[in-house]
């Protein structure tokens, strides 16, 4: 959603600069411009760019206790090729993404469209859907952990009323990942819903009026007008949720115990990174995992950028 006005602005300023302003603009103007953005650039460099460069460097090192490290070249990357845990964590993260991103986007659009109608008490519903977003992830995880508890949880109690013996939601290796996916979708709907809502309200009324005059039904209107005009927003949300899903950590950390039998089948790439960096104190290998993750996200985002030309409509 943010991208559309931004791109429009960029185009507008480009036109201006190209036409007349470049010639008249003095050097000193540029000096002031750079000076003004310097504080932000400095912050960006120190807190974002520098750590990335350092991580890249550390991925070629091996760490001992308390910050001593030595250069080991490509050893960490060679080790990755044989690491079954890493493979498993990529698989877990993949499953997590395949379920949370499409289902999450689908449900958020559905909720946004429903709450965009003229219905009674819609602000109450909007608030309810947004509540998980402003709740701390730790609190969400704790409450769901209790709901999911196999012996004393609410979920299995309700199931027992209709005679079903519920499974071990968060400690059965086959189910635990899906339990986490449910919580992730539940807690992500609100945020995406707000973005979609604003996207929906940005669609000019005249299109709907024209469609109405032409006698289009509501389903046709949705697929022919709403969805295409919402596509830039969908694109934005899908990129953001994909990157977010690649970096899933907190829910798994909070809901799956360290000695849980389901840890291997749920641990994500970032969880494995955390395990190596802070538990096993193997910071060099952890940095290599982080670099690999960065590259994978970069590639997938690039693919999305190329594909978007086929389905995203900017007016």
């Amino acid at each position: 959603m943010k991208q559309i006005p931004l791109q429009a602005e960029v185009k507008a300023t480009k036109k201006l600069t190209v036409s007349s302003l470049t010639k008249t603009r003095k050097r000193s103007d540029y000096f002031w411009a750079y000076l003004m953005i310097a504080p932000t650039m400095l912050g960006l460099f120190i807190f974002y760019l520098w750590p990335i460069i350092q991580t890249f460097y550390f991925s070629f090192t091996e760490w001992g206790a308390f910050g001593q490290y030595e250069w080991t070249g490509l050893d960490n990357y060679k080790r990755m090729l044989e690491d079954t845990n890493l493979l498993q964590s990529f698989k877990n993260t993949g499953i997590y993404i395949i379920f949370t991103v499409p289902i999450g986007i689908f449900l958020s659009i559905l909720v946004a469209v429903l709450l965009n109608q003229k219905i009674k008490g819609k602000s109450v519903y909007r608030t309810l859907y947004f509540l998980p977003v402003i709740t701390m992830p730790a609190a969400i995880a704790m409450v769901w952990k209790w709901l999911f508890n196999a012996d004393y949880g609410l979920l299995n109690y309700l199931l027992s009323l209709i005679g079903i013996k519920g499974p071990h939601w968060v400690s059965d290796p086959k189910i635990a990942l899906y339990s986490i996916i449910v919580v992730a979708i539940w807690s992500g709907i609100g945020y995406n819903m707000v973005i979609f809502l604003s996207g929906l309200q940005g669609i000019p009324k005249m299109y709907y009026e024209a469609a109405e005059i032409d006698g289009a039904g509501s389903i046709k209107v949705f697929f022919k007008i709403t969805l295409p005009l919402l596509s830039p927003v969908i694109f934005f949300v899908s990129i953001m949720s994909l990157i977010g899903a690649f970096q899933v950590f907190d829910l798994i950390f909070m809901m799956i115990g360290k000695s849980s039998t389901a840890l291997e089948s749920t641990q994500s790439i970032v969880y494995l990174f955390y395990q190596h960096a802070f538990v096993l104190n193997d910071k060099g290998y952890a940095a290599a995992i982080a670099v690999l993750l960065l590259i994978v996200i970069l590639i997938i985002t690039a693919i999305q950028m190329v594909l978007q030309k086929k389905w995203v409509h900017y007016d």
Binding site: H168, S171, G257, T261
Partner: peptide, 8 residues
């Protein structure tokens, strides 16, 4: 079981 003891 181990699963039960990690949950509670």
């Amino acid at each position: 079981t181990q699963a039960q003891m990690t949950e509670t």
